[in-house]
């Protein structure tokens, strides 16, 4: 999972071949598409809950859902752009779980 030093910078076709690190690409795909969606929904869901304190709930839901598409796009790209897989593994599923927990706590506590 950690960053291994590339021995030599491959050129051309070789650089975009999956043959170099199929496991790594599989992880990044999982992080980007599935866990990225989970992360996006949880972050937007929490934003939705927090926004209901100032907006009508339909407005809060629409606003956080609209922004979610940009967030998801960003997460997918980031899952491929960041060199550190470890960081991705911490932030994407971890952040998603954190937001999920916070939403549950807020809902249970009756804050919103």
């Amino acid at each position: 999972m950690t960053l291994s030093k590339p021995a030599k910078k491959p050129k051309g076709r070789a650089a975009i071949s999956t043959a170099i690190a199929p496991v790594e690409y599989a992880q990044r795909l999982l992080l980007a598409i599935i866990l990225g969606y989970f992360f996006t929904v949880e972050v937007s869901g929490l934003a939705d809950l927090l926004l209901t304190s100032t907006l009508a709930r339909s407005e809060a839901a629409a606003l956080s859902a609209m922004i979610a598409f940009l967030l998801y796009t960003f997460v997918i790209l980031w899952a491929f752009a960041d060199r550190s897989l470890l960081r991705l593994w911490i932030v994407i599923p971890g952040g998603g779980l954190l937001c999920y927990g916070l939403s549950r706590f807020l809902a249970m506590d009756g804050v919103v």
Partner: peptide, 21 residues
């Protein structure tokens, strides 16, 4: 493309809607 996704907020993001509904 973005607006096409935004039209269907309640289809693509039921999880977000669920939070308050």
């Amino acid at each position: 493309t973005l607006s096409g996704l935004i039209i269907f907020i309640s289809i693509y993001l039921p999880g977000v809607m669920d939070r308050t509904y």
